[in-house]
Amino acid sequence: YKIYPYDSLIVTNSISVKLPKDVDRTRLERHLSPEEFQEVFGMSIEEFDRLALWKRNDLKKKALLF
């Protein structure tokens, strides 16, 4: 996945969300650098992957990456 800054990946309720063209809309968190991922989620990507799907989705919603 290509890395993008968190600010360019957050999704708000506005209709005209302009995400970069090559971003996987269903896995926005994968486009964060490991350092920024840790900062946003408070855990590593590996720890995040071990969580239940509902928990990952809940965290993504709170981080505006859903």
Rank of each mutant, 00 (worst) to 15 (best):
R30M: 06
K21V: 13
H31T: 01
E46D: 13
E46T: 12
R30D: 02
F48Q: 00
E35G: 09
D24A: 04
N13G: 13
K18L: 12
I10T: 07
T26G: 10
F48T: 00
E35R: 10
L19I: 08
I15N: 15
L53F: 10
K2G: 08
P5C: 04
V11L: 13
L65I: 05
V11E: 06
K61L: 08
G42F: 09
F66Q: 07
I3Q: 08
N57Y: 08
I10E: 02
E29S: 01
V17W: 03
E47K: 09
M43I: 07
V17G: 15
V23W: 02
L53Q: 11
F66S: 08
V40N: 06
L9K: 00
N57V: 14
S33W: 03
I45Y: 07
Y4T: 01
K2W: 06
E39D: 12
L51Q: 07
E47T: 10
V17Y: 03
L53Y: 09
V17K: 14
T12Y: 15
L9S: 00
A63C: 04
T26Q: 13
T12I: 13
D49R: 05
R30P: 01
I10A: 05
E47G: 06
S14A: 12
R56W: 02
L53V: 11
F41M: 06
S8G: 04
A63N: 07
R50M: 14
Y4C: 03
K18F: 07
Q38Y: 14
R50P: 03
R30N: 04
V40E: 02
L65T: 00
T12R: 11
Y6W: 04
F37K: 00
P20S: 05
K60D: 00
D7L: 15
D49H: 07
L9E: 01
V23F: 03
F37M: 07
S16C: 15
V11T: 12
E46W: 09
L9D: 01
F48V: 00
N13Q: 10
K18I: 11
Y1A: 12
R30C: 05
E36V: 07
S44V: 13
R56H: 02
V40H: 11
D49W: 05
K61F: 08
Y4F: 07
L32G: 00
Y4P: 02
F66K: 04
D7K: 15
E29L: 02
S16F: 13
L51P: 00
E46L: 12
F66A: 08
N13A: 11
I15E: 15
S16Q: 12
T26M: 14
L28I: 06
D7H: 15
L65G: 02
K21F: 10
L64T: 04
Y4R: 00
E47W: 07
I3K: 07
H31A: 02
S14W: 06
S14K: 10
P5Y: 03
P5E: 05
